[in-house]
Simulated assay, not measured.
Amino acid sequence: MEEEEAAASKPALPDAFLDFLKENGLDPSIYYESQSTPRYIRLKPGFEDRIEEIEAEIKCKLEEVEWLPGFYALPPDVQIANSNAYREGKIYGIDAASGAAVTALSISAGDHVLDLCAAPGAKLCMISDLLGDSGSVTGVDVSSHRLAACRTMLQKYALGNLCRLFVADGTTFSLVPTRVLSDPKSCESILEENVTFKEWTSRRPWKERKEAARVRKNGAVRSGNQLPELIYYGYHSGVVGLTRSELYQTFRDSEYLSRGYDKVLVDAECTHDGSIKHVQKFEQWGWETLQRRVLDAERSDSLTVLQLKLLTNGFRLLKSGGILVYSTCSFTVAQNEEVVKQFLEGDPCAELQAIDAAENWPCKNGRVPNTLRFDAVTSKTSGLFVAKFSKLTI
């Protein structure tokens, strides 16, 4: 009986998708693991002594993820959204593979970090967690409504103090990290009437609201020529006390070697075929939609072009000696190893590094040395490709 139920839960994958898996050296059984793949949460630092209380509330034992500090596994059917721990920001959902990608950045206190494709925001929250009380994090996404969701998460979990969020094209974003001001109030008195940015408020000026309404009405798409739109900044993100011209000043590419970010995460847009739950949704959406969103060669080609541009621009914004992590939730070689190869061939300052923390991680090696792959069978996580680069001075 149990075998019959398990068989019924397996998606009847179409032949075209099975061919796609074969081309990429993938076992279809990856997509049959949703019933046994746990969901993961991260416990906000400082609440370690509340674990028993959280377990009693959700009526479930939290299983510590030994290879990833701060993470806990839950049965996939356990709901946390209605728990006080979730509503009060003590825990938040993030897949362990995504946590591994952030861990690969080796974030230290005082780092200035760029999350170039920040939505939906779980990695952004983890980055903010790791920074603690120093440094800064800049979140960028081309989608205003998805980035607004990131803003909501940061506020809910009280993690936005060092953060600023820009709606912008990640392939052309060029703003350097704002070195955190030790006393924003003193800067306000010095700059006097020239100060543009005071403490952030959700209440926008009338002109901004009118412009946003016009954009929504016309369905306008953000172009690479538009200035990044600052939709949120924490009090200690370095924005308070600056004029608009100071915030939006531009630099020559060579200046990013000293003025750039210490760490950059490029979790690029992809076909999402590494997400088991995402692929299983096509049973309801129709496999024709899968053909258009995942298997279509033209879409795949456009995505790899975008991914390479995002990786290239993220690396341009990295300071000398800095670290960049590139990741996708796709299993395809074209969106992962091939993008990595093209990037390395085009930038002599880029060096692919081994991820030291991964020594005990349950994952496979990618087809390019020092790259990693997570999947439901090997890792008990969603699928994820991870590559780590350092910026050399030549």
Rank of each mutant, 00 (worst) to 15 (best):
K263F: 08
Y248T: 10
K10D: 01
S330T: 15
E283W: 03
P76L: 06
L175D: 01
Q342V: 05
D169C: 12
R39A: 07
D301I: 10
D77A: 10
W200V: 10
A122D: 12
E33N: 07
M126V: 00
Y72A: 03
V325G: 09
R316C: 09
S34L: 14
E246D: 07
G170R: 07
R203W: 01
E345I: 09
A376K: 03
L131W: 02
V113Q: 01
L384A: 14
A148I: 08
E298S: 12
N24A: 06
K217Q: 12
Q226L: 14
L124P: 01
Y157N: 14
K341Y: 09
K59D: 09
L392A: 12
W287K: 02
S144N: 11
D296H: 11
E5I: 15
V180Y: 02
R252M: 10
G132S: 11
Q155H: 02
G321A: 11
V266P: 01
V240H: 06
P76M: 06
R179G: 03
E57G: 02
K90Y: 13
I54K: 02
L74Y: 06
W285N: 10
P28T: 03
A119F: 06
E63P: 06
I190N: 00
F315C: 11
A149M: 08
S237I: 11
G70F: 09
A6D: 13
G238Q: 05
P28V: 05
D111Y: 08
W287V: 04
Q280T: 12
A100N: 05
Y232I: 07
A158R: 11
S379D: 07
T289N: 12
H112I: 02
D296A: 09
R151S: 06
E246C: 06
Y40W: 09
L290I: 10
D27W: 04
Y235H: 13
Y86P: 00
